[in-house]
Amino acid sequence: MGRSVELARIIDGCKSGDADSFAQVVDMYSGRCYGYFYRLTGDRDLSDELLSELFIRLVEKIGSYKGGAFESWLFKIASNIFHDHLRGKQRRKKLLETRRGQLELEPDLNEQRVSDEAGDRLDRLQAQLSRLDDDTRDLILLRFYSELSFKEIAELRSEPIGTALSKLHRGLKKLRELMEG
């Protein structure tokens, strides 16, 4: 209860344009949102960009937040940003295909490189996640990083709860098989 009161106070601060309140939202959610973007893209630089876009959109849209689960509202924006990125990527890919005839490298291997302090290395989970279709991967990661209930996730994705549940089950089962295989 205390956390939700605190969050409501922070959101009120954001609505009145208080920079400290925005900074608090970043502190609270940047880790989870970054994880979501990173596991979707496998690219740190791109995740940085998407995270930055998410929080800028938060500043622009906070006035339209009318209560309810803030995580649901925030991750809905995050999901939209990722899908906008995917659409842009598809357009660029088509453009490249028409101009060059074929892409230069296998895109999955190119995109799943992980840069960390130890240097570039391939993240095994990331590689297997990339073998799932975009929609299933998004659902799994949305569920994991947003910590929303299934009802909220189904509403966020505008699909029946049974469909979301079934997709998640199949997706996670396949991911486990891929990791074990």
């Binding site: 940047s30 970054y34 994880g35 990173y38 740190r44 940085d48 095994r124 989970l125 569920r143």
Partner: peptide, 13 residues
């Protein structure tokens, strides 16, 4: 499946 995700934390920003 979710334990797998927990076992492989994503990097922090």
């Amino acid at each position: 499946g979710e334990r797998l995700l927990e076992a492989h934390p994503a990097p922090a920003p």
